[in-house]
Amino acid sequence: MQDAGSNMQQTIAYALISAKISPELAIFCRISEGELTVPNTMSANNSENQKLNLNTALRILENAGRPDPRLASDDPDIQIQGVIDALCDLSIHDGLTGLVNATFFHAVLTREIERSLRTGRTCGLIVIDIDYFKSINDTYGHSTGDKVIQAVAAELKRSLRSMDTAARIGGEEFAVILPECAPEDAIHAATRIHSVLNPMTISVEENSLKLTTSAGLVWTNPNASSSSAELLSEADQEMYRAKRSGRGRLCYRYDDSTLISHQERSALMALPMEGSVDGH
């Protein structure tokens, strides 16, 4: 049952991506006879549409603790729309933090890598891992561990631009996607986020807990295709470098041989534009 549920989450997430994250998912899902058919467009080896029984969907949502008054509606149209909305929400978010989950993170990152290839502009990726998280869990218990994770997530949410995406991609590992962000700007953003998190003090009952995070920053290469997993693994390597060099650090490698610096940008912008057509 659990497996069927998480499979379904993945399918819905894929359908969302192919629908360009349109809230009008209903267009993509055929609904009839109490069944929801989701085209599995992203999966090459599975061309079969997946069907989800309405009762199964309702059970998944009940287990996930996602109450929506529409789920109990007598009108099947309202009920099924409620199911779609709740499943979409469930399929992309992490329950503990409200950040997007790993599946959706990879979908967004894949899209941004493609955008980067088309536009030639870089997209930044930060990976953040809480230092000594295991000993926090062991010393104070899992509920304290959860609070620490929620506190880091809340800080992340506060420090992002509206276009950025923060995700919880593992137990105590987070990622931030910075679309259309020049390397200098990504360094600036990552440094700002890193300084907010380091050190971070969290009060748990009578104790106040001081913690640090290690972070790695990388960029998309607008000149070469790569998968979201490859880029994530590069960012992980930078983050592990930060761990090895003493934790509580931010690591990145900056190679500017093919990227445009701020100086070049402003020099180019200084082009006398009186020659252009008015309004262009």
């Binding site: 290839l117 088309r118 536009t119 030639g120 607008p222 000149n223 070469a224 295709s225």
Partner: peptide, 8 residues
Amino acid sequence: DVGAGIGD
């Protein structure tokens, strides 16, 4: 006739 961007 090459596309936009400087991708691969």
